[in-house]
Amino acid sequence: MLGCEKNNKNIQQLVAINPLSYTDVAFSSIKDTVFVSTYSGRISKRIKEQDKEELLIQLKDEVYSLQYSDKQNLVIASTLKSGILFIDVHTGEIKKTLQIKKDTWLNSIFLSKDDNYLIGFDTKGNNHIWDLNNDYKKLDFKKELPNSFIRYVDKLGAFYYQTQGKYIKWNPTDKRIEKEYKISGKLVDINDNGDFLLLNFNEFRMFNSKADSLEFKNKHPYYIYKYSNGDTVHDPYQLKLTAARFTMDKIYTSSLDQSIRVWNKIDGTLIDEWYLHNATISDIDISKNQKQLVSVDLKGEIRFWDLK
């Protein structure tokens, strides 16, 4: 990376990048086709049972989070230095850039299911909400909701803010709090019943928002160590969870332990465990018809799982 030549006019920087790592994944069709991103700036299409990536764009920047907009046929990417990029999935052309202040970035972005709002908060703790149907206008509720972080937008357009041991459901149209929930953790999914799925380090929590009660919480029960001959042993470690998603009747969680666990959504019992990955699973996504799950890891592996 750094040479020994004198008078090198290009200012090079150390980056500590694993170019293999997939940082995020997002379905772009009902099944079998997704977009993936890397620290090294690649955004590529991956198709089930095809070994090679189809490069969409090579950015001179790091990409941490991806969302796919069905309506606009765009991939939305959160980067280290270039802000938020809207990329045409057919041409790879950058159609729109949303600037973020210097020396800060968004590690995670979320696109509402109706493609109306793009949300996230930056590394300095500032919330960002863009109204995509209103010329990307930024919405700001800092005065009404200080010291809070936007985490989710539900299908009815309500915003969910995390603040000091609770969540606030916020109506952006009327600018009022609809409800408060005494639950902590990172809100990662809300299902059609309004149940919350939250992550708290190595534990996931299923919260019934209508009953205002925690239904259950659970951890991956053990780390599955794999020997080179295929044998496995269960080590009693509960490692950090990296992602979780609802389907109609199940919950799927991924972890640093390189596994995906399948849980019964009603009572939280463990149904299945998938351990074909050989690295930390950085993200999972579930197709819109809930018939397929895709997972990516930090050594560049991708796996499609057909769901029952």
Partner: peptide, 23 residues
């Protein structure tokens, strides 16, 4: 595999963690 395993540098880069970067 091209993964950076040792860096001697000044300054050292911010760490990456599970798919993102922290300051």
């Amino acid at each position: 595999s091209g993964v950076e395993r040792v860096i001697i540098g000044s300054p050292l880069p911010d760490p990456t963690i599970h798919g993102y970067r922290i300051s």
